[in-house]
């Protein structure tokens, strides 16, 4: 039973981690928060549902969620951040909240505000390991989420693009003086950040059969909590923070009471803010 909850917790947490990574990436390059980030999760969820309703197989839904949420994230950067790049840090917070509401309303227009569901995948496959049962859906979620986490970690650490993102996060003026194009770095970062959130949303629709156009709000907050618990500015910290919250949530639901879920998560969040505001894995920043 406990092992089963661990698997469930890691599965759920891996989707939170994907959301938290996006916050961390954007916060890194712009030093600003994208408060419409949770809505990219929602857009991914509904893109996946829309594509699946057309009869497309699961991988197509995943790719569509990846691409559409990525492009919406670029639109957010171009409309909410770039024009306000010299304004107060509060301005893009307000503009992204507005953009988020716009997205919620837009999706409500097409799907209604009642819960939508992902069409039945028709898979009844289950992997049984002793007392553990892992459904095909769980395997898809775990493989996709961890594949993307390892992928983004490698991209950031090993590639020319990753060096440009980290250099820009570190010192944007000096990075530009090396020939790194600030807008290109920012836009690609937003794309990746949105794409990961979109995939997380799409994956979540597979387990929680019903989603509304308002799920982005909680997802955005949970992603932010994961980022803070993991350690601001640390990509791997964000991943671990996401997994930890997933575990806490499933354990709470299994052994305590689902009704207290968010109370428990946000109590932990406040405890971190007071006792360990730098998070579990503080980014080794310019000392």
């Amino acid at each position: 039973m406990f092992e089963q909850q661990v698997i469930n917790g890691i599965t759920l947490g891996s989707t939170y981690a994907l959301v938290a990574i996006g916050y961390t990436l954007v916060l890194g390059v712009l030093n600003k928060l994208n408060l419409a980030h949770g809505e990219l999760f929602m857009v991914g969820a509904f893109t996946g549902i829309a594509v699946a309703r057309l009869g497309a197989p699961l991988p197509v839904s995943l790719v569509a969620a990846f691409a559409v949420s990525g492009l919406v994230a670029v639109a957010i950067e171009r409309s909410c951040f770039y024009p306000l790049r010299n304004a107060s840090f509060l301005s893009p917070m307000l503009s992204t909240i507005a953009f988020g509401i716009l997205l919620q309303n837009l999706v409500s227009q097409f799907f209604g505000s009642d819960p939508s569901r992902f069409p039945d995948t028709g898979s009844s496959f289950q992997l049984t390991l002793g007392t553990l049962t892992v459904s095909a859906i769980h395997i898809v979620i775990l493989a996709t989420a961890f594949g993307l986490m390892i992928g983004i970690d490698l991209l950031i650490r090993k590639t020319r693009w990753g060096i440009a993102v980290r250099a820009t996060s570190d010192d944007a003026e000096t990075a530009a003086q090396q020939g790194m194009h600030p807008s290109r770095v920012t836009m690609t970062t937003f794309f990746v950040s949105g794409a990961l959130a979109g995939v997380a949303g799409m994956l979540t629709t597979l387990v929680y059969s019903q989603v509304t156009p308002h799920i982005g709000i909680r997802q955005g907050l949970i992603g932010m909590v994961a980022m803070v618990i993991g350690g601001l500015g640390n990509l791997r910290g964000a991943m671990i923070g996401g997994l930890a919250i997933g575990l806490v949530e499933t354990m709470n639901d299994a052994y305590f009471s689902a009704g207290y879920r968010d109370l428990v998560i946000f109590a932990i969040f406040f405890a971190f803010l007071i006792v360990k505001p730098e998070g579990l894995f503080p980014a080794h920043h310019s000392r």
Binding site: I163, D170, Q178, S286
Partner: peptide, 26 residues
């Protein structure tokens, strides 16, 4: 044209080699 800026401004969170790779970015 390259500038060695005042106060050095190396990329503190990057390794030495990554700093050089950043320099050779183009």
């Amino acid at each position: 044209i390259r500038l060695v800026p005042e106060g050095r401004r190396v990329f503190a969170t990057l390794s030495v080699e990554e700093n050089l790779r950043a320099g050779a970015y183009l």
